[in-house]
């Protein structure tokens, strides 16, 4: 027991350094701590609980560290009451933040391997810091592939970064959408169809997947068929979450608490429940 530690249930004040639109329904918040001694360390894959004053709190994964390292960027889709309230924030506003919480993508464990990252929609947000970490020590990894799918071209996130990921870091970026009009010259189809189009050695590959459960299910299936072992596939799970510290019971997924045992799980550890409904 550490008495000097702040109560994990009480948010700390953070200032909105910047807010910007990412897509038609998705925006990013750059938050800086208002207290002097607050740290900004986090592991890619972790999330914060963001509190919109008087409205409520939501778990949002960290999509990047702030430029100067003193804070975090969160990419949020405006879908519910709280995310809508967060969307209304302006630079200089104060919000509450608790975190970071949860497990991380296996960056160190992937050293010496090829890495296949598969993201669906806003699922790219928690994977972006993983990509940054891989690119930061690029020589430690083999082939890196990002397979990214979204419903429509206008739903694609971080498109202005793709060129640098490709050119500067040699990441194989493959993008696909479910539906598009004739102005779209890219791929159409589900993200799993991209797997044969990138180079990786299935026996030496770590896969990191984040997206809707159905997308992850097919992604796992396809990767397995290509020979990637279950122990080298990582997925993220999502459930209702209130406390983020294992007290409230909401985020249970079988024996796991998504908040403290997840959100990132090694596939073989959640496999028995992965295809069951209503767990």
């Amino acid at each position: 027991m550490n008495f000097s530690e702040p109560d994990p249930m009480v948010p700390q004040p953070y200032k909105v350094r910047q807010i910007w639109q990412e897509t038609h329904d998705t925006f990013s918040l750059d938050l800086e701590p208002k207290g002097p001694s607050l740290h900004s360390e986090f592991a890619p894959g972790q999330f914060n609980m963001l509190y919109a004053f008087g409205v409520g709190e939501v778990p949002i994964s960290i999509s990047a560290c702030s430029k100067n390292g003193d804070g975090w960027i969160h990419t949020i889709r405006d879908v519910g009451t709280v995310t809508h309230a967060l969307h209304q924030l302006r630079e200089g506003d104060t919000i509450g933040l608790r975190g970071p919480f949860g497990s991380a993508w296996p960056i160190d464990e992937s050293k010496g391997s090829d890495v296949v990252i598969m993201a669906g929609g806003i699922g790219l947000a928690p994977l972006r810091p993983a990509l940054y970490a891989l690119m930061e020590s690029r020589k430690n990894f083999g082939d890196i592939a990002l397979l990214y799918g979204a419903r429509k071209p206008e739903d694609l996130l971080y498109t202005d970064e793709f060129e640098s990921w490709r050119g500067k870091y040699g990441v194989q970026v493959r993008v696909t959408v479910d539906n598009a009009d004739r102005t779209w010259s890219g791929n159409v189809g589900v993200v799993t169809t991209m797997i044969p189009r990138v180079n990786f050695d299935p026996l030496q590959t770590v896969a990191m997947i984040c997206g809707p459960e159905i997308m992850m299910r097919y992604a796992v299936l396809e990767l397995r068929q290509n020979g990637v072992s279950e122990e080298n596939i990582y997925v993220t799970m999502e459930r209702n979450m209130k406390c983020a510290v294992g007290f409230c019971g909401h985020c249970q997924f079988g024996p796991a608490f998504i908040c403290k045992d997840g959100p990132v799980f090694r596939y073989d550890r959640v496999k028995p429940l992965f295809s069951l409904r209503e767990v």
Partner: peptide, 30 residues
């Protein structure tokens, strides 16, 4: 298991968070 409720007063300047027992038998829970 518990849940939290966020409330504000009529001015909108005072907010509170309450924790209360919750049950996995409710629809809201998940």
């Amino acid at each position: 298991c518990s849940t939290v409720e966020d409330v504000t007063d009529i001015t909108g300047d005072h907010a509170e968070r309450w924790q209360r027992w919750d049950s996995c038998f409710t629809m809201d829970f998940s």
